[in-house]
């Protein structure tokens, strides 16, 4: 039982991170109808900026305090992600208003390759370290209840808490603030939103900025866990089955979907993996998402599309 709980908790904590990245997909899709394939590349780019500036700043300025260096690197990385958002709107989206969804998807594919290439050219392609003081050793809990207790990875636990806090903040931002309402209005109908004076271009910049911040936070968490290197871009794309499952337009869907996928892939690898030779968790997440789609094509919380004939 304790092992099952360990696997379950491990899955939930991994799932929380998937939710965070999935939220980046959902935010952009809701506001602009663009399926942002570059979200993974944004995670890598943001993490590279954070890692490298945290390393460069002490050398350039003589700052000895690592906390201060990290805070400054974070601020610079946020500014970089805002600049990326502005450039994407200015150079790509603005010219593709009212184009087919497939065209916009292709444009984000281009942005993904561009960010991956430029990121590695500017910041380097080695493995870099983000050290924000996350604890690395595990902790045993409930030793009196279960034999041997339950092992919890402190780093995963803190990462899940940060992700949960950010997800909560974003949900509130969407539901309760005027900008959030404007974002939702744009998501519902571009033309209607424009007709009541909502500036479409500004909204797109805001939403890409928000997606940039979620990418940065995800990049810092994963970068701290895995080291900052190219694979972060592919790790972030593991949130794809989450949006398939949760629905592309639903914030709660991204959260619940992330948790289901996180738990599903860990349980499948541990309990089904040995029967089929192992290594199944990556594709099993997609199988799980596709099974859900058989019953709810719009995803768990996605909007049902009904067209009049």
């Amino acid at each position: 039982m304790s092992f099952f709980l360990e696997t379950l908790i491990g899955g939930l904590m991994a799932g929380m991170l998937y939710s965070l990245v999935a939220l980046g997909f959902v935010l952009i899709f809701k506001a602009s109808g663009v399926f942002n394939f570059a979200q993974g590349a944004m995670v890598l780019f943001a993490a590279l900026a954070m890692a490298r500036f945290a390393e460069w700043l002490p050398a350039w300025t003589g700052i000895g305090n690592p906390v201060l260096a990290n805070v400054m690197a974070f601020i610079i990385s946020v500014a970089i992600m805002f600049a990326v958002a502005w450039l994407v709107e200015r150079l790509v989206l603005r010219h593709l208003v009212n184009q087919e969804g497939a065209t916009l998807l292709m444009a984000t594919l281009g942005i993904a390759y561009f960010l991956e290439g430029v990121g590695q050219t500017v910041f380097g392609s080695d493995i870099y370290k983000i050290d924000v003081g996350m604890p690395k050793d595990p902790v045993m809990m409930l030793e009196s209840v279960f034999e041997g207790g339950i092992l919890i990875n402190k780093e995963d636990f803190i990462a899940a808490l940060i992700a949960a806090a950010l997800v909560g903040a974003l949900a509130l931002f969407f539901q309760k603030t005027p900008t959030g309402r404007a974002l939702r209005a744009v998501a519902d109908d571009h033309q209607a939103a424009q007709s009541i004076g909502i500036p479409l271009n500004r909204i797109w910049v805001i939403v890409w900025c928000v997606a940039g911040i979620t990418a940065l936070v995800a990049g810092i968490i994963w970068g701290s866990k895995l080291g900052v290197q190219f694979s972060l871009a592919t790790v972030a794309l593991r949130a794809l089955p989450v949006v398939i499952l949760g629905g592309l337009t639903s914030v709660p869907g991204a959260i619940i979907g992330g948790l289901i996928i996180g738990v599903g892939e860990k349980l499948s690898e541990v309990y089904l993996g040995p029967m089929v030779g192992g290594g199944i968790e990556i594709w099993f997440a997609y199988v799980l998402a596709l099974v859900f789609l058989l019953f709810r094509p719009q995803g768990l919380f996605g909007e049902k599309i009904i067209d009049r004939v």
Binding site: T7, G10, S231, V235, V270, G273, G277, G279
Partner: peptide, 21 residues
């Protein structure tokens, strides 16, 4: 005991849970 890890190998939580078990 054979424990495969899928490319590129950044997701190994389940693998190490099996090692712990």
């Amino acid at each position: 005991m054979l424990l495969p890890v899928a490319h590129p190998g950044v997701e190994q939580k389940a693998t190490w849970l099996q090692i712990r078990q």
